[in-house]
Amino acid sequence: MIEVRNLVVRYGNRRAINDLTFSISAGECLAVLGGNGAGKSTLLKALSSELPVAGGTIQLEGEELRSWSAASLACRRAVLPQESALSFPFTVGQVIEMGCAPFPRRRHSQALSRATELADIGQFLERKYNTLSGGERQRVQWARVLAQILCGQDKRLLILDEPTSALDPPQASRLMQVVRDLRNDGVAAIVVAHDINLAAQFADRILLLNTGRKVGIGTPREVLTTKNLATTYGMEVNVIDHPEYRSPLVVPAYK
């Protein structure tokens, strides 16, 4: 669905992403992991058309990303930024409804009710957005992005930048479970995560970045090795089997 070849993205004079190649197919969930300044958010900004590409190509459905119009991209791609400031007192319901803006009105109501249910925010639809806590706001923005994705019918791409940073553990798992379930609707997802174990549990593949370069890409078990994690994070870890799921579990090795 999306194909990245030899991508270079500059941030000031620095090459924040350097010679990166990978692809995501429809219905796949890719988690992007890496330390601070590894280039995770820069990569997402390039995929979201917020930063220009300095070298290489990004193709969506076989066409250059920049050749897509804003309107047709809005029907194919939804982006959840790390944080959103809203200085006007919209209600939660109004914010979520904005996610449906690119689509004809007849598709709105079904997408809205499903997004509200999946993001578990039915209880504060009438509240003002700027009276909510950080975690609640993140869930509302998630619901808005979900409404946008659920209104669409073609193959779609979901881009999430640290979607669980303000959520408590049950809500974080719930969100990742929804992302995973959306695969059945043909939705591909690329998620920047800070929780390695949550990513390992829910993602199909993991892309590990260090200083803008690819350390590894593959299934969680292939990528999350002690060697790769030592290179990326500069610390010793133990990788054990999760007692309940078939995913690896990363535990810091305190010596």
């Binding site: 979201s48 058309s49 917020e50 804003a70 309107a71 991209l73 809005a74 029907c75 791609r77 939804a78 982006v79 930024p81 959103s84 400031a85 809203l86 200085s87 006007f88 919209f90 914010v95 904005m98 996610g99 803006a101 690119p102 946008q148």
Partner: peptide
């Protein structure tokens, strides 16, 4: 209205 949500957000919603 979409601009009020944020410029980036409005851009991702097709504006």
């Amino acid at each position: 209205d979409l601009i009020l949500l944020g410029e980036r957000e409005a851009g991702h919603l097709g504006v």
